[in-house]
Amino acid sequence: MDYLVKLYQNAFLEPLSVAETITIRKPIGTEKHVVLDWIGAQFNQRWQSEAATAYSRHNSLFIAVHDKEIVGFACYDGTAKGFFGPLGVSEFAREKGVGKQLLRKTLNAMKEAGYGYAIIPTNSEDYYRKYLDLIEINGSEKSIYHDMVG
């Protein structure tokens, strides 16, 4: 199912008032292979492909780094313009706010790039509902991924 998130009116996107414990940033060119290999090993090749596309288009890929190790990633515009995701966090870093920080940073980047809405294709809407007001897109059960090969 796909969901819309209003980027122009969303309290979640306001700056954090506490210090962030994880560094969220865009990878630089010399890190590209390391980041993409990590995504493929931690998650799957489809997410690796989406991240590679997001990186190549506008470097709309973010990584979460802790002690010089990647612990998560998120991107947008990997599959289609306006699409958020995927979002992935290593087992070590789950339940520590890393996903929340990646989500905030990536959605803010979309807002700054001029998007009024983000489309989130997900089967994990409960996770996103903790932070965002999701608007279900009727008829999007198959999403943009409905006719993939492989």
Rank of each mutant, 00 (worst) to 15 (best):
L4W: 05
Y8M: 09
Y8F: 04
Q9G: 03
P15G: 10
V18P: 00
I22C: 13
I24C: 07
P27N: 08
P27H: 06
P27S: 09
G29Y: 08
H33E: 15
L36H: 06
L36P: 03
D37W: 00
D37Q: 14
G40I: 11
A41V: 02
Q42C: 07
N44P: 01
N44T: 02
N44I: 00
Q48R: 13
S49L: 03
E50D: 02
E50I: 08
A51D: 01
A52H: 01
A52T: 09
T53N: 10
A54W: 00
A54V: 03
A54Y: 01
Y55V: 06
R57F: 11
S60N: 13
I63V: 15
A64W: 06
H66W: 05
H66A: 08
D67S: 12
K68P: 00
K68I: 02
E69M: 11
E69D: 12
I70H: 04
V71T: 12
V71F: 02
G72T: 09
C75P: 02
D77L: 02
A80I: 12
F84I: 10
G88T: 04
V89Y: 05
S90P: 00
S90N: 07
S90I: 03
E91K: 11
E91H: 08
E91V: 11
F92A: 13
A93Q: 08
K96H: 13
G97F: 04
K100L: 01
Q101R: 14
Q101H: 10
L102R: 03
K105D: 03
E112M: 06
E112G: 00
A113W: 04
Y115D: 11
T122R: 07
Y127G: 07
Y127L: 14
R129I: 11
R129C: 12
K130T: 14
L132D: 09
D133W: 01
D133F: 06
L134H: 07
L134I: 14
E136R: 07
N138D: 14
G139R: 09
G139V: 04
S140L: 10
E141S: 14
K142P: 00
Y145T: 06
D147V: 12
D147A: 15
V149T: 08
